[in-house]
Amino acid sequence: MTALGILYPGHFAEDDYARIEQLLGSDIRVDLVRVEGAEDAHRVDAPREMGSPERLAASVEGLRLAGAETVVWAAPSGGFGYGWEGAQEQVRALAVAAGMLASSTSFAFVHAVRELGVRRVAVGAPYAQDSADLFADFLRAGGVEVAGVRAAGAGTPEEIAGWGEAETLALARAADASGAEAVVLPDIALHTAAHVPLLEESLGKPVLTANQVTVWEGLRLADRRVNAPELGALFTREPIVQV
């Protein structure tokens, strides 16, 4: 049994993780612990409070008790909002507090792009333009070329959590850009676990989504390789990249 720990802000698309766990097989467990007082806000001034070392450290005890082997901080803006160096410090502090290997969804996207063997991606974010641009800058800092950034400028995470297949597909199509080898949708409030195959078939290229890459990152840290085509091209590639 491999137990993955996920620190999750809010109550938006948490059911994605139960679906992903089911698709991965019976020997993988995904333990979700909510970070109290944190929300995956779509504002550039929110991430530092949301992802503070003290707030994350206070939430890891539940994962240790559950027997988690790795931990991933599942709040993209709570990672990339710190910038590349700041996000690295955040993950190091989380690893020390948790006593296990740690990462974040922001780094998961960079690692997943490398795993796919692509260089240029298009970004489709429900965020406002300033937050979407910060995420694109983070990808660039990780060596990823960004062919285009589409910011939907949607409202609250609660609203995004209400999006269905049609809205998610519309965002992915609007984001797709000439020369992009993959499309990235960086919002954990977006339900995507049931839609990745459709998105990839419609666009004709890999699609990376926040909840999908978060679980994949936990597996990568645990050095587990899982073939799960229902979760997209990312879960059909080997070997998993090393940090």
Score class of each variant (00 low, 15 high):
residue 99 G to K: 08
residue 72 V to G: 02
residue 121 V to G: 01
residue 61 E to D: 15
residue 76 P to H: 11
residue 88 Q to S: 10
residue 104 S to D: 14
residue 74 A to S: 15
residue 92 R to K: 11
residue 127 Y to P: 05
residue 61 E to Y: 05
residue 78 G to K: 10
residue 72 V to F: 08
residue 88 Q to P: 00
residue 64 R to Y: 05
residue 100 M to L: 05
residue 117 G to I: 00
residue 84 W to E: 13
residue 102 A to N: 05
residue 125 A to Q: 11
residue 100 M to R: 07
residue 104 S to F: 02
residue 94 L to H: 07
residue 83 G to H: 09
residue 103 S to H: 04
residue 83 G to W: 10
residue 89 E to L: 15
residue 80 F to R: 07
residue 116 L to A: 00
residue 68 A to W: 04
residue 71 V to Q: 07
residue 117 G to N: 01
residue 89 E to N: 12
residue 67 G to C: 09
residue 112 A to F: 02
residue 63 L to P: 12
residue 101 L to S: 15
residue 57 A to T: 14
residue 114 R to Y: 07
residue 120 R to W: 14
residue 113 V to Y: 03
residue 94 L to Y: 11
residue 110 V to M: 00
residue 73 W to A: 14
residue 90 Q to C: 06
residue 60 V to E: 14
residue 107 F to S: 05
residue 80 F to E: 10
residue 107 F to G: 01
residue 70 T to C: 07
residue 74 A to T: 09
residue 66 A to M: 09
residue 103 S to Y: 02
residue 60 V to R: 14
residue 92 R to T: 05
residue 61 E to P: 02
residue 122 A to W: 05
residue 81 G to Y: 05
residue 60 V to M: 14
residue 59 S to W: 08
residue 104 S to M: 01
residue 65 L to C: 07
residue 76 P to D: 12
residue 80 F to D: 06
residue 79 G to I: 01
residue 77 S to A: 15
residue 57 A to R: 14
residue 121 V to K: 00
residue 85 E to F: 05
residue 70 T to K: 06
residue 103 S to T: 09
residue 76 P to L: 12
residue 73 W to V: 09
residue 127 Y to T: 08
residue 105 T to F: 00
residue 77 S to W: 10
residue 99 G to D: 07
residue 109 F to P: 00
residue 82 Y to G: 00
residue 57 A to Q: 14
residue 87 A to M: 13
residue 110 V to P: 00
residue 79 G to E: 04
residue 96 V to I: 12
residue 65 L to K: 14
residue 103 S to C: 03
residue 125 A to E: 10
residue 58 A to E: 15
residue 79 G to T: 14
residue 73 W to T: 05
residue 125 A to K: 10
residue 83 G to E: 10
residue 80 F to A: 08
residue 116 L to V: 11
residue 105 T to P: 04
residue 72 V to M: 07
residue 124 G to I: 01
residue 115 E to W: 04
residue 116 L to S: 00
residue 118 V to I: 04
residue 87 A to R: 15
residue 69 E to Q: 15
residue 126 P to G: 03
residue 118 V to R: 02
residue 63 L to I: 07
residue 91 V to P: 03
